[in-house]
Design a protein around this nucleic acid. Structure first.
Lengths: 209, 209
DNA sequence: AACGATCTGTAGTGATCACTACGGTAAGTC
DNA sequence: GACTTACCGTAGTGATCACTACAGATCGTT
């Protein structure tokens, strides 16, 4: 049963992957509106009817692109669980920087969708925002682990600042190309976030005393 | 002569402004591809032929939107020229934060265009990248004023980091809405950039000794 | 061999795209 | 009043949009 279904769908799965590959390329070049089914069809060599057999509509296709890109991006790094806080932050920022260099499609397309504010929100955008919110929560928890005496507002600020830096540096790399040393900048950013944590912890203690 | 030309074009100038208003709204909602001439025409109440009388083509229209938005954004803030470096940075970040809150169209549309990498680059995107490069140079010069002993690479890194923070925080505000306190985050970022300057200056001196 | 499920190929649908041809109108110039 | 300039309105152009109807093709199952 498992064997037959694998064989049955072997061709289909390959086609699905080809379609997603093409759609990923085009969407991260031209955004949501710029990704036409015709273009995707031409680039992957399959007719439009095949695309619509695998995906309900254009929105579903782009959402699937986001989902797959995010999965790949996630699997490219992991949260370290030992060492000093400084070491762990340094290790994590390095991994995120590397993951962004190796599979930038996820964040590029995600940011393009996030910046758009169309009247009817496509599911693709919703999906990215959901993923992003999840990441924000994890960042907040990591911050709480490292400096437990911060209050809720400070933790939010810290997580937001950390993610904003990552977004901004990614954009700098996308625009600046090879002239931007992403790992070095991420390293700097990691240290800045730790400093910010210390600074915020200080002002929290000042308010308490 | 000047009077007549003013009177002659009075109606036209108003129409041009109405077209730009509508195009700005739509473009910052839906991006380049999502901005259709038909939609702009409906929103500004003028027929497509009027749009094409005022602008050569869609690309020219969007480029004009960028240009006007940038002008408005620029006029919303100025570089302070007195006080300690810390004060000047704090003042500047505050003004930039306020300008971004009041006229976010420029950066939102600009970032959307910058993230796209279409085969044939529209002039609108080129124009934004040019404006951005100019800002980067000014940031670099400001950094050089404040810590003259930094080497070229460190200055580039600092300017890139400062701009990346601004971009990232702007995005956080766009996505997070009212739950994001942009001035507070910009204030934090300003202090972080100063700390980064000190840190980079230190490592420069270490290398020299 | 017969059959149903999975996928592809052909050939469209009406809607919307960027853009234009062209006549009309109002105002300024002479 | 004749003429030019500046701008708007009507009504299109062919191309491309997302999407679909439907007839094969290929396959494992029976």
């Amino acid at each position: 049963m498992a064997d037959t279904s694998r064989r049955r769908r072997a061709n289909g799965e390959a086609s699905r992957a080809k379609i997603l590959d093409a759609a990923t390329e085009i969407a991260s070049e031209r955004g949501y509106e710029g990704t036409s089914i015709n273009l995707v069809s031409k680039r992957c060599g399959l007719p439009a009817s095949s695309i619509y057999w695998h995906f309900a509509d254009k929105d579903d296709l782009i959402a699937a692109v986001i989902e797959r890109s995010f999965g790949r991006w996630l699997s490219a790094w992991s949260v370290p669980d030992d060492g000093t806080p400084r070491d762990r932050v340094a290790e994590m920022t390095m991994q995120v920087a590397k993951a962004l260099l190796e599979s930038p499609d996820f964040l590029r397309l995600g940011l393009m969708l996030a910046l758009e504010r169309r009247p009817v929100e496509p599911r693709a955008r919703e999906m990215y925002l959901q993923v992003r919110a999840q990441a924000q929560i994890q960042l907040r928890e990591a911050a709480m682990d490292m400096s437990p005496d911060l209050d809720a507002a400070a933790l939010d600020q810290l997580a937001t600042y950390a993610m904003a830096g990552a977004d901004g540096l990614f954009i700098a790399k996308e625009i600046g190309g090879d002239s931007v040393d992403l790992p070095a900048l991420f390293d700097l950013h990691g240290r800045m976030v730790i400093d910010a944590a210390l600074r915020l912890a200080e002002s929290t203690r000042d308010e308490d005393s």
